[in-house]
Amino acid sequence: MQPVLVAKKLSKKYGKVVALDSADLELYPGEVLGVIGDNGAGKSTLIKVLCGAVIPDSGEILLDGKNVTFTSPIEARKLGIETVYQNLALSPALSITDNMFLGREIRQKGFMGSFLKFLDKKAMADEARKRLSDLGLLTIQNINQLVETLSGGQRQGVAVARATSFGTKVVIMDEPTAALGVKESRRVLELIGEVRSRGIPIILISHNMPHVFEVADRIHIHRLGTRLCVIDPKKHEMSDAVAYMTGAKQPPQN
């Protein structure tokens, strides 16, 4: 099976600090790939390179087998790599609809849209409502509610719905449960399953081992700027993963 996203020998140095040392990564269709690593292992640089926020010194990225380069998150997004940032990148004072279409609004047809540039608010609200309920997320009554009136989990839902709405090939989720309570975390994990069931593969970065072990199909362990190994969460214990991550135990040779 051809991977959707492949990173080959990515390297990145900040002065003398090697953040990425010829790191590889593969993401297969329809899977959730957990990415874990100790602090300073370079996983966040790896993710920033994949989402376009950091330009690597060398190495290549293949999307659907084709070599791609991008120099900003906006370009990466245009190619179908969507990122749900840890801070969610939502505008709290705008409505759910406004947020979902921020930067890619739908204009009205004809003169009103092309000349006066009026927005088609109804089309956007309908689409936003559809996206949210497609994700089994919510039956929203008031799609024009301001995002700041939502709970943390609901905001995460809006961010995920936005990320999966526009011809997305890959979703990168950075610490989606870090700021959430138990119930809300549970809901976000269900949401990840929902996105996967729609055939969109996910890269999940998290410090929360139980969460990663629960939803990931494979777990990529990052250590010292490169991929140490990829493990199957069904065949390994959490304590093993932590031991590999910290160098206390040698990883299995696959």
Binding site: L88, A93, G103
Partner: peptide
């Protein structure tokens, strides 16, 4: 107009949203 609000609300978020 929506982008005016988005920038004032959270400039970084607006940037990441593609504005």
């Amino acid at each position: 107009g929506r982008h005016v609000y988005a920038i004032g609300d959270d400039k970084e978020a607006a940037e990441l949203s593609g504005i």
